[in-house]
Design a protein around this nucleic acid. Structure first.
Length: 341
DNA sequence: AATTGATTCAACCGCCGTCTC
DNA sequence: AGAGACGGCGGTTGAATCAAT
């Protein structure tokens, strides 16, 4: 048995709001407030609307200081950066953009930004797909991939693709057998904090800087797999980032990749300005992902992913960040960090 | 000018977490 | 403790609008 509806569906009006309804709702809330009970509100006003509908109308259109359309480049970059980092947490993203509603941002992302970013992928060649499929078949156990497929959210795939876009632009080593768990985990916020850490006299070691940066870059940093110790994971992370880890005796050159200008790359992706060209190798990487989708189906079935043993931590980690968002102060601190930018 | 397909975006749906009793 | 009410959220829908033919 499902739960009772929040209102009498038969006696509530649906569809677009009229100017009269808007005026009545606005006038009442401005004078009396919501009273802390949206369900009861329409009855008090005499509106034949569901309480939830009233709430949505007020929050998205009637409340003061709402902006519609005309997103700036800065807003675009904030939205993209946050989407890549935390996914479709529209309310959190909206909290960083005064006057913007989660619904507006969601629509803007789905209709404009996503296409602008993901639509630039080069079509992969059929021969390449066949080659890759053959490699997959040889690698796997020959069983139907669909049977074992693990579906990630569409949001997760989009973020994977965006990460690939940025990584390609940053010339980060990537190969088909280099699983996403090892991909660089950077974010402008993390980069900024990382740089801050480097210049902070209180930071005694490079490792501390790395830890701090990675916490911010991936606030919901998943548990390290049992098969890979923390040190090894750090080595892998460092390797993927394109710099040597302190423990291997190398020096930090974060700038080589991460500080190379993720913001600039995002900008180039968004606004199609060729400040950072996507070379053949990068196109090949993007084609790889298309190939996976074609072989395993549009739903992101990823045996190659699960065979790495990383799927658990990823599914419960950054790609499904709902719980972590509420518990991890790093995410909750996004607002002040952005204000600092 | 008419038709068709694509795009936009306001609004709805249903799930989930929190609060209250 | 647990059941119900409510708020909040993300995903989806569909009517309106725009663009292409």
């Amino acid at each position: 048995m499902g739960r009772a509806p929040c209102c009498d569906k038969a006696n509530v009006k649906k569809g677009p709001w009229s100017a009269e309804e808007d005026a009545e709702l606005k006038a009442y809330i401005e004078e009396h407030g919501t009273g802390g009970n949206w369900i009861a509100l329409p009855h008090k006003i005499g509106l034949k609307r569901c309480g939830k509908s009233c709430r949505l109308r007020w929050l998205n259109y009637l409340r003061p200081n709402i902006k519609h359309g005309g997103f700036t480049e800065e807003e675009d970059q904030i939205i993209c950066s946050l989407y890549i980092s935390i996914g479709s947490r529209w309310s959190i993203i909206a909290a960083q953009l005064p006057g913007r509603t989660d619904n507006d941002i969601k629509n803007y992302w789905n209709t404009k930004l996503k296409k602008r970013l993901l639509g630039k992928r080069k079509e992969s060649s059929r021969s390449h797909r066949l080659h890759l499929k053959q490699a997959l078949d040889e690698e796997g156990d020959g069983t139907n991939h669909d049977t074992h497929s693990q579906a990630l959210s569409a949001s997760a795939l989009e973020r994977m693709q965006l990460q690939m876009q940025l990584q390609g632009l940053c010339n980060v080593p990537f190969s088909f057998y280099n699983p996403p768990a090892l991909w660089p985990k950077y974010h402008p916020l993390g980069d900024r904090v990382f740089q801050t850490q480097l210049t902070d006299a209180s930071v005694a070691t490079h490792e501390t800087a790395i830890d701090s940066a990675q916490q911010v870059v991936f606030p919901m940093k998943p548990e390290t797999p049992k098969s890979i110790g923390a040190n090894m994971q750090r080595e892998l992370d460092c390797s993927a980032l394109g710099f040597q880890s302190p423990s291997s005796g190398g020096t930090l050159s974060m700038q080589a990749c991460v500080a190379a200008g993720v913001q600039a790359d995002l900008h180039s992706l968004l606004y199609c300005k060729s400040t950072s060209s996507v070379g053949d190798e990068e196109h090949q990487q993007l084609a790889d992902l298309d190939c996976y989708k074609e072989i395993y189906g549009e739903k992101e079935s990823t045996d190659w992913w699960t065979t790495t043993g990383f799927e658990d931590k990823l599914l419960m980690g950054p790609w499904d960040s709902a719980s972590a968002l509420h518990s991890d102060p790093m995410i909750q601190d996004y607002a002040p960090r952005y204000e600092d930018l």
